[in-house]
Write a protein that binds this DNA or RNA. Structure first.
Length: 571
RNA sequence: GCCCUCGUAGCUCAGUGGAUAGAGCGUCUGCCUCCGGAGCAGGAAGUCACAGGUUCGAAUCCUGUCGAGGGCACCA
């Protein structure tokens, strides 16, 4: 739609130049915007304001001239010049009606774009340590990352979802020691000392109990190191499986689960590890130096506050070293762009990561999205959590309580850089206060109309909606009958969808989808109260309105699909 | 102390340098003989934290002040 209007305006200006009405060396690219106030029309352009100076004309005069040239186009219902020289355009009913045909032809691909042009993008998100359950913040990042991936795919990018598993390092050792201590307790060993910094959550005891049940108490008399090594692998596998299940239960599937361990391991040829190879690359480019026995990366070259250690004086690598090797690997795998979603507690890490990516020769090819944290409420009361005792509401608890649809919807409703207050009671409420039901209800209502039109009971559970729509909605429906305000408003709203996809893809802003979903649902509800769809006395109008209603159904389902929320046929 | 993010209606928040700053909730007033009332219509509600600056034009960009949250390891 925007392109159509842009062409119109561009042509008008070019024609005016050719006709000698306007003296302009070159025709600037017009900016086409949606006026904030719908009373100003469907589209507005400031082109007259932008080019008046170089044309040596008064902006209003130029605007009048251009307005006269677009007024006759069949897609334009009205054009007016306003304020200092804005040109406001209103689309004709026939132009809007065409949108319905486009929606029905596109189906689930409605609003898909090619702005990505097949560019390869990787979205890495969640990446929770495999040492325990996910917290609700992970849930938010899961919803964000998955929805971003869906949006980017819809916008024409080639997207891969990845989970980075921190399965090497201190926290894994602590984890293993914690499980071992619980195991010994359960096995009846006296005087077991629980590690100072150990994980105290009840799930550790559960894991220990399962090992005891599976393998007996023989490990109690084993060498501690051997025992811990065995428990680490056993418990790690269990937790990882659990993470996959929870995420999968929310509809989030990763293409790649990337193990940190592979970065520390030699290749099959026994050569350098990925970390060592990354060091070599940085070394060759002159970004490394030794100081006080440690190996440093001169990240200040790329705007970091201070240089960073990669290999400690004791010879071990920092977490950052592995992360550099990891990102080098991402680009080696051919991604044009890498998006990492991190929690707000990692934002101090952003500059050094950007510096590292730049030092590897991929400057600007990483986008670090910082997801703000989630505060849990229940009916307005803060839900307290204690890290010390390990007592917390996990992401899994939340999913069990409010369901995947409500959880995903609420997680996406706020912009990413805004801390989120999540009220469990509200998310569970099935009322008008709850936006996810408002949107889903619009979809269910449409399905009821289709069932009604097919002569079935409106709540009949056996009706196949897609098949019904296919049989019922005539492709040659007289859409020209759709010219009342509620109908035009509905079509206008549908026409906005491709722009919403574009903006949310460019800004990595899934929250714009929830907003649009609510707008579209509202517009539909307004249409519904004012326009009777199924009317045996008016078969042509019924056919046209069924067409519009079905297009709305398709659009709603598409939007909800990118959000990752189901589009129920009845509720 | 330094760095990052944020400050918009009673509450929770949208807002792409553009026109009279919007939505949901809450509040007040109405609407079911009729396709699903989990709905619709209408009203009240604002010093866009504050002060400068850039611009034809600033909630939006820049600087400073105040306030809130987060981060500042040879931890991960």
């Amino acid at each position: 739609m925007r392109e159509l209007v842009a062409d119109l305006v561009r042509d008008a200006l070019a024609d005016a130049v050719r006709a000698g009405d306007v003296a302009l060396a070159e025709v600037p690219e017009p900016r086409i915007e949606r006026p904030r106030d719908p009373a100003h029309g469907d589209w507005a352009t400031n082109i007259a304001l932008a080019s008046a100076k170089s044309a040596g004309m008064n902006p209003r005069q130029l605007a009048d001239l251009l307005a006269a040239r677009v007024a006759d186009h069949p897609d334009v219902a009205a054009v007016e010049v306003a304020g200092p020289g804005f040109i406001n355009l209103r689309l004709s009913a026939s132009a809007l009606q065409r949108v319905l045909t486009e929606v029905r032809a596109a189906g689930g691909t409605f609003g898909s774009l090619d702005i990505g042009a097949g560019e390869r993008v990787q979205v890495e998100f969640v990446s929770a340590n495999p040492v325990g359950p996910m917290h609700v913040g992970h849930g938010r990042w899961a919803a964000l990352g998955d929805s971003m991936a869906r949006i980017l795919s819809h916008a024409g990018y080639s997207v891969q979802r990845e989970f980075y598993i921190n399965d090497q390092g201190v926290q894994m050792d602590v984890f293993a020691k914690s499980v071992a201590a619980r195991y010994l307790e359960l096995a009846g060993v006296e005087g077991v000392e629980f590690p100072e910094e150990g994980y105290r959550g009840a799930y550790i005891i559960e894991i220990a109990r399962e090992i005891l049940a599976d393998e007996g108490d023989g490990w109690a008399s084993a060498e501690p190191a051997e025992r811990e090594h065995h428990f680490k692998e056993k418990a790690y596998a269990q937790v990882l499986e659990h993470l996959k299940n929870v995420l999968s239960g929310m509809g989030v599937e990763f293409d790649v689960w990337f193990s940190e361990r592979t970065l520390h391991a030699s290749g099959p040829d026994g050569g350098a590890t990925p970390i060592e190879r990354a060091f070599e690359r940085l070394e060759d480019a002159g970004h490394l130096y030794e100081h006080e026995g440690a190996l440093w990366f001169r990240s200040t070259t790329f705007g970091d506050d201070k240089d960073r250690v990669l290999r400690k004086a004791d010879g071990s690598y920092t977490y950052f070293a592995a992360d550099i090797a990891y990102h080098a690997d991402k680009y080696d795998r051919g991604f044009d762009r890498v998006i990492d979603i991190w929690g707000a507690d990692h934002h101090g890490y952003v500059k050094r990561m950007e510096a590292a990516v730049a030092a590897l020769g991929h400057e600007g090819k990483i986008t670090l999205v910082i997801g703000q944290l989630v505060n849990l409420f229940r009916g307005g009361e803060v839900v307290r959590m204690s890290k010390r005792t390990g007592e917390m509401v996990t992401f899994e608890d939340l999913l069990d309580e409010v369901g995947a649809d409500a959880a995903r919807y609420f997680f996406l409703r706020r912009s990413t850089d805004q801390p989120l207050d999540f009220d469990i009671a509200l998310a569970k409420e099935q009322s008008s206060e709850n936006p996810v039901y408002y949107v889903q209800y619009a979809h269910a209502r449409i399905c009821a109309i289709l069932r009604k039109a097919a002569g079935a009971d409106t709540a009949d559970t056996d009706v196949d909606i897609a098949a019904t729509a296919r049989d019922l909605v005539r492709t040659e429906a007289p859409l020209y009958l759709l010219d009342s305000d509620p109908e035009l408003t509905l079509m206008r709203k549908l026409a906005e969808w491709p722009e919403v996809v574009e903006i949310s893809a460019r800004q990595l802003a899934p929250h714009k989808l929830t907003r649009y979903a609510e707008d579209l649902a509202q517009t539909f509800h307004q249409f519904y109260t004012q326009c009777r769809v199924v009317d045996p006395d008016a078969p042509d109008l019924t056919a046209a309105r069924l067409y519009a209603v079905d297009a709305t159904r398709i659009a709603l389902a598409t939007v909800l699909g990118l959000i990752g929320v189901s589009a129920p046929e009845r509720m």
